[in-house]
Computed example of a mutant assay.
Amino acid sequence: MKKILLVALAFATVQFSSAQVETPQPSPASKMEQKVGLTDVTVNYSRPGVKGRTIFGDLVPYGKVWRTGANKNTTISFSDDVMIGGKELKAGEYALFTKPNAGSWDIYFYTDTNNWGAPRKWDDAKVALTTTAKVEKLPFNVETFMILITNIKTNGASLEFVWENVMVEVPFTVPTDKKAVANIEKVMAGPSANDYFDSATFYYDNGKDINKAKMWIEKAVELSDKPRFWYIHTQALIYKKAGDKKAAKKAAERSLALAKEAKYDAYIKKNEDLLKTL
């Protein structure tokens, strides 16, 4: 009986220790995703509340680096290089720190994103970009801290920090024109070598029109900047299936030579095996 009670007690202890109480967080986490032009912008941060306190100049002291939110440092990511305050910020993810003052804020894009709050030891070498923005006083109070992306246009938007009776706006521009023109020119120039290769491979693998596959694989090889042994091996397979063994042998020999040059054993064997059938 005593043994049964001990087992039951142990089981109850395991059950109790694995239970987790979930309660609302004082500063709930938030994630904002916004496309600006053709650029993806994502902000991860926590949102503290005023809760009857004086925020700027008190809870958040003037002249000191702030995590720009609560809990883990706030992060922001850009899928493209952007321009902020006339300076370029490379695509990537950054910790977003600020130094509030009464009339302006300094905003820092910091390469180390794994800090609980501000870094214990600030490293200027990790500051990818710094800019300054003026403080605008609001005629009302905002209870919960917000980071917004507003004034969205084709080539840019504004990053806004809003809390208590303060708003700070940081405009940024994105390379929409450059990306759009590049996309248009690429499409208008016609299919790429990869497009032709994928199409030819699909037709070959699925028993479709072999003459179209032959035309497309030839185009893929022609458009390649340098000979690709896997392209030419596929070309040999297509030639063989199309009944042109002479062309298939020539392509297989070329692919074999290139595979040996690249020391790519799998394609060396594939070509050697193919040549035995020609």
Results as ranks from 00 to 15, higher is better:
241 K>S: 12
200 A>R: 01
205 D>I: 04
273 D>E: 15
238 I>H: 02
54 T>L: 12
7 V>P: 03
2 K>P: 00
198 D>R: 11
254 R>S: 15
81 D>R: 06
270 K>G: 05
11 F>V: 15
16 F>K: 02
244 D>P: 05
169 E>H: 00
248 A>L: 13
5 L>G: 06
133 A>K: 12
94 Y>V: 02
150 T>W: 06
191 P>G: 01
76 I>S: 01
213 A>Y: 02
256 L>T: 07
222 E>N: 13
36 V>Y: 05
128 A>Y: 06
177 D>K: 13
210 I>K: 01
13 T>H: 09
33 E>N: 12
88 E>I: 10
169 E>R: 14
13 T>I: 15
45 Y>L: 05
71 N>G: 07
142 V>C: 04
34 Q>D: 00
195 D>G: 08
6 L>Y: 01
59 L>E: 07
274 L>C: 07
202 F>Y: 15
118 A>I: 15
161 F>G: 07
273 D>Y: 05
58 D>K: 15
141 N>D: 10
220 A>L: 01
274 L>T: 04
168 V>S: 13
86 G>H: 06
56 F>R: 10
247 A>E: 11
255 S>H: 04
186 K>V: 00
229 F>P: 12
254 R>P: 06
114 N>H: 11
56 F>C: 11
111 T>N: 07
99 K>F: 07
72 K>N: 14
268 I>R: 01
92 G>L: 02
235 Q>V: 11
172 F>K: 07
210 I>A: 06
235 Q>Y: 09
220 A>S: 02
80 D>P: 02
252 A>E: 05
18 S>C: 04
57 G>I: 06
105 W>D: 04
122 W>P: 09
161 F>V: 03
81 D>A: 03
219 K>L: 00
196 Y>R: 09
38 L>I: 15
18 S>F: 10
51 K>D: 11
110 Y>G: 08
100 P>K: 09
202 F>K: 14
227 P>R: 03
198 D>K: 12
211 N>S: 11
